[in-house]
Amino acid sequence: MKVQTTGVCVTFGEATPALNDVSLSIGEQEQVALIGPSGSGKSTLLRVLSMALAPSAGSLLCDDVDPWQLRTARLQRLRSRMHLCPQTSSLPARQRVALAVLSGLLPTRSLLFALRSLVSPSRADVNLVHGLLTRLDVDQHLWRPVETLSGGQRQRVAIARAMAAEVDTLFADEPLSALDPSNADACLSTLCQHASAHRQTLVCSLHQVDLARKHLQRVIGLRQGAVLFDCAAAELSDAMVDDLYRGHEAELEAELEA
């Protein structure tokens, strides 16, 4: 899916807007990293792009359609073409991992699937889920309730759910925040490969600048709700990163130390 914003602003009733005049365009099958210090508006931008939040001003075009002009049913159908993997775990705590991953398929599958999976998922679906979990190294937890998993394991399950979704665009909000560096590297690599293989657009907000550089094609730097830079990953210089994190150096250092 091609996503385009023009002059998007989002205010949550505070004086400073969460997003301020963001205009950008993300083409099909592009793989984009959103970086920036905490509170720079990464999550808000992802929510706007994934149609979870209507912009206060400006417009959003998804495949040249403004989703907020559509009727609810059409909007919901459009939403089913993309998947947002939110930062905080949004997996029902008492759901089993297998079902949590399958819920990525809920928008595109039939009512029958929805009902029978609640009782017990079909063999084919379980195979699919197991394959994804194996790639993320959490397959041994297939039948455990989500609430028994650690934060990092939950995050990987959430990534698996995003990968399970039959969509053409993936949005991931800090999908690696609770993972240790080696796991983070592997998971991001898996996610990017999966997106390429399925010809999906991928937009991913990240704290780890070096991982962004390593795995994604394009990097957008957000600072105080505005786009500071938007360049190919190869062009990202240390000076640009320092600029982005000015006043938030501690965050960057913590990241590097880790």
């Binding site: 994934s50 919901q76 029902p92 928008p107």
Partner: peptide
């Protein structure tokens, strides 16, 4: 907890089914 439900809805799940996979699942016991 509303987060799981909101996430399902934001990802385009049908309104009639999403609570079944999130809210009801949570409240079951």
């Amino acid at each position: 907890d509303e987060a799981p439900l909101e996430n399902l809805l934001a990802n385009g799940s049908p309104l009639a089914l999403a609570p079944m996979w999130s809210t009801l699942m949570q409240a079951r016991s």
